[in-house]
Write a protein that binds this DNA or RNA. Structure first.
Lengths: 373, 373
DNA sequence: GCAATCTTGGTAAACGTTTGCCGAGAAAGT
DNA sequence: ACTTTCTCGGCAAACGTTTACCAAGATTGC
């Protein structure tokens, strides 16, 4: 310690292969304790020292080894996000939001997708456990209980969508499907639709069931009878939408409007309708769900029910943080949904025929009046 | 060791809070060395022992701590993937492929997106370094040299798209843009188009430049003059496509075909054309690039140039593995592109008018003949 | 029954940090 | 000049693994 000054590096820039905290300490002529304290912003280290340390870090391009740090501190700085499938545009938008909010809160994220496959789901959980995520958001809309117990056992906070255990350390994001879907149904009813079909999502997905239930309840509220033949099961994919619409087209009677469990399905339906030579919304109205970015540019632009990805992401991270800080044990967060009216919905065929100018089928000047619900 | 048998757990299922390798060893009445060897599939451990160990692991729901393992072994089991933006459907499809191939090869992946922001790019690199990824695929189509040096310094294998250093430990995935784009231009030329516009990507993106160059070269090959006014810069987003088409519409003369630097742009263009009341392909032909899933269901379905995400992903992982195993120092991988003809391309207006039946604008029976190039 | 071979256990070092403790200087106040 | 207060350095333990080593036990071959 007497020769502190002479030990000080002369600034030779040859970088050692080993880039320890030790290397930094030597280079800055301080102890490793000081370097560690500097990096971790311990307030007792004075400004001069800190500056020297940061300079050394910069010169050497040093950065701490996350796993060593996590190992000893017990904090990995990771928040896990389990999604259903990454190729459904809804999820990238969600991931983006989740990442942004997580980073705001000083976390990094670990993404894993289940592809609706229980085997992959267990792999996802395993990853989360192995990488020691501090909290996990399960956004897969269909959960496997037994595996999640392992997370609960280790006291890892979790947040679920729609449905989840009310055990301490877990929160649930309750999406108010009914609000948006009722708006959608009312919108259709106000336009005069009575024959409304629904293309659902996979039956085993809780969120899909919730949407279907909300639809059926909303129909009821509007005093419209539900024809079981017009409930057709899709799978939340483009192909599923196409297939579902094919089934509908093959039926005895065509509905005047189709509501879909998600936008991918709706786009599939839209496409099939186009293929069938029918016009939207003149011959058939379509409503989607999710309001993905693409919904704005379909032809015609898709009326859809929005569920805010950012709100979902923010609530998820907020819930996780609250658990990590021990502020809360269990809470439910309400996530709102609401209708966004675009041009895929209009009067049912036959009604108000006089309002429709036959030659104009492009969106620029469609004569179909719409009512903002 | 004399009392091995008595030490054997009686199967009491109370799980200790600490879930060490030590706990497993005790529970299975073996040494930690044996547990470690079992987990790592060291061949010398015999079947009986291994079975006992696996049972204990199963009973305790034990799983090794990845960071401790990584710390000592120097292998994190992570492959990094840096993408431009996750909300452009091209990338989720790529990520999916990359993950699948990585998992096949025993790796997990760490995704980071730059959002075309150099600051975020440096965060991405930092993450990759901190988490000690064993290799990094830079799929951002626009790279920042100085930061990548840090990866190179640490001998972390890298793979780039289109352009990258030819230094050892890095490979480049050379996408043959020209092949697909020439097919596209030839396809248009064969249909009779001479007035072909191009909506490019962001100028600073190398891949966008390559596409533009390939277009200009292909035009030349077909003996078509390039009108600079018909090269308009987009940004690879939907909005960019809409804006670009607006510019084109505002020009003195309209092209008969528009080729786009990616599908998102093309969909934006498609939408704007629809808004303008023009028909596709009757009034204007459109070709996209990437062939994202959505291209199949646009109205009309989009003729696009495909670049296989799976091929890209597979080549990336293959290259990374080759570097990790020391099999190779530097190599270039060719990635092919090819035209997929759908219905957004047809004869230019005026030409072969007699073939077009005015009333039929739906895809089911469009009279426009197409030629598979 | 003896030697050769194969497995296993115990031990310990290592990976790169964090963190608590204590003593040694330095700076500051009296 | 002497005490008090700060700040830093050195040290060491810990985090949960892997892995090399050697000795001991079990198994096999003869």
């Amino acid at each position: 310690m007497a020769n502190k000054k002479n030990k000080r590096s002369t600034g030779s820039l040859k970088k050692p292969a080993l880039m320890d905290i030790r290397t930094v300490a030597e280079h800055a002529s301080v102890s490793i304790a000081t370097v560690s304290r500097t990096i971790n912003h311990v307030p007792t280290v004075n400004a001069k020292m800190a500056k020297r340390v940061w300079e050394a870090i910069r010169e050497l391009n040093y950065f701490p080894n996350t796993q060593a740090r996590a190992l000893v501190s017990g904090r990995s700085g990771l928040l896990g996000l389990i999604v259903s499938e990454i190729t459904n545009p809804f999820f990238p938008e969600l991931i983006q939001g989740f990442e942004d909010v997580a980073v705001e809160n000083g976390y990094e994220i670990l993404i894993s997708s289940t592809n609706y496959d229980p085997k992959r789901m267990s792999l996802c959980i395993r990853r989360m456990l192995e990488r020691k995520t501090e909290g996990v958001a399960v956004m897969t809309f269909g959960i496997e209980e037994p595996l999640l117990e392992q997370l609960a056992e280790r006291n890892i906070p979790m947040v679920f969508v729609d449905v989840g255990p009310d055990s301490p350390g877990t929160s649930v994001l309750k999406v108010d499907y009914h609000h948006g879907i009722r708006q959608g149904v009312q919108h259709l009813a106000a336009l005069g639709h009575r024959d409304i079909a629904f293309v659902s999502g996979p039956a085993r997905l809780h969120s899909a069931q919730s949407r279907l239930n909300a639809f059926s309840k909303s129909l009821n509220e509007c005093g419209i009878a539900l024809d079981p033949a017009w409930i057709v099961e899709g799978d939340h994919t483009l192909e599923g939408g196409i297939l579902a619409m094919e089934k509908l087209l093959a039926g005895d009677k065509l509905p005047t409007a189709v509501m879909c469990s998600n936008d991918m399905t709706a786009i599939g339906v839209l496409h099939k309708v186009y293929r069938a030579g029918l016009r939207i919304p003149d011959d058939l109205s379509i409503i989607g769900f999710d309001d993905i970015q693409m919904a704005r540019v379909t032809i015609p632009p898709l009326t859809s029910i929005q569920m805010s990805r950012l709100e979902l992401a923010r609530a998820a991270v907020t819930a996780l943080r609250a658990h990590l800080e021990g502020t809360e044990t269990h809470r439910e967060y309400k996530i709102d949904t609401h209708l966004v009216v675009r041009e895929s919905t209009g009067y049912p065929p036959g009604a108000m025929e006089h309002l429709q100018q036959s030659g104009q089928r492009n969106g620029q000047d469609s004569a179909v009046k719409r009512k903002k619900v």
